[in-house]
Amino acid sequence: MPTEVYLVRHGETMFNQLNKVQGWSDSPLTVKGINDLKVTARNLSQVHFDRMYSSDLKRAIDTVHLMKDANEVSELGKIKKLPAFREVFFGSFEGDDIDETWKKVAVAGGLKPETDIDKIINQLGIAKFREATKKADPRHLAENSEELDERMDQAIDQLTQEAQGLGRVLIVSHGDFIKTLAIKYWNQANGSHVVPFPENGSVTRGILHDNGKFEIVDYNIKNNELINF
């Protein structure tokens, strides 16, 4: 039996608000983030889930509990953390100013200093962007495409084991990780790196098939669209 997968991006955090790089580093949800998530949770309150998961980062854990507490039609046990679904790791850039970080990444990729990440990715492609990030990182700890792709495979493999026999699950994950999943698994992306960054509290829907194949069928569904979803 295929499993329907709802991927929810966590709510806005303090680092989001302060324009800081946030991968494996963590910061608390803002008041706006919590209020926006309450709308998402209300829109999903009548959707039955067999199980809910989150990455092991606190902003995702706090988000999934808001989803769980608002749901009126599911009997959910303990939330399990799936570390493979955590955000992309930005190494030494964690907590730094985003604009200054992208300037360094652009230069490492052979471009002029640029603060617009979409322009950088459009020129380099997502794989070279990851390599440039690792190169620009003074300690070269940031995840490159190969490392991230391996972790995505681990995430889907783990989910395949976890979700056997389940009809629908919810996982709270992170913006760059969800976007990268979409580049790989969303038919409309067709392998293109030109995929919009998912909004805080948005829902991306996927199907996990019995053979372990995963596909994304709806991407970055916002609250005003969830009402009629």
Rank of each mutant, 00 (worst) to 15 (best):
Gly165Arg: 13
Lys213Phe: 10
Arg42Glu: 13
Lys38Thr: 04
Arg168Tyr: 08
Asp116Phe: 05
Gln46Val: 12
Asp62Arg: 03
Gly95Ile: 12
Val47Trp: 15
Glu199Arg: 13
Asn190Ile: 08
Asn200Tyr: 15
Val194Ala: 14
Leu181Arg: 01
Phe85Glu: 00
Asp137Trp: 02
Pro198Lys: 01
Ile178Met: 07
Ser25Asp: 05
Glu72Cys: 11
Lys104Pro: 01
Glu4Cys: 07
Glu199Asn: 12
Asp99Gly: 10
Leu124Ile: 03
Ala106Ile: 01
Asp116Tyr: 08
Glu100Lys: 09
Arg205Ile: 15
Lys112Ala: 11
Thr63Ala: 03
Ile227Gly: 11
Ala155Gln: 01
Arg42Ala: 15
Arg139Gln: 03
Pro138Cys: 01
Pro138Asp: 02
Phe93Ile: 02
Thr40Phe: 03
Pro28Asn: 08
Ser27Val: 11
Asp116Ala: 04
Asp137Ser: 05
Leu29Gly: 01
Asn220Asp: 14
Ser45Met: 11
Arg59Glu: 02
Ile171Met: 08
Ile178Ser: 04
Leu159Asp: 03
Lys81Asn: 15
Phe90Lys: 01
Gln17Gly: 07
Thr30Asp: 06
Phe90Trp: 09
Thr63Gly: 02
Gly206Trp: 04
Ile221Thr: 06
Val172Glu: 00
Thr133Trp: 00
Glu94Ala: 06
Thr40Ala: 03
Lys68Gln: 14
Ser192Asn: 12
Met14Gly: 08
Ala136Phe: 00
Asn224Ala: 14
Val5Gln: 11
Ala142Val: 07
Ser202Ile: 10
Ile117Phe: 12
Tyr185Cys: 07
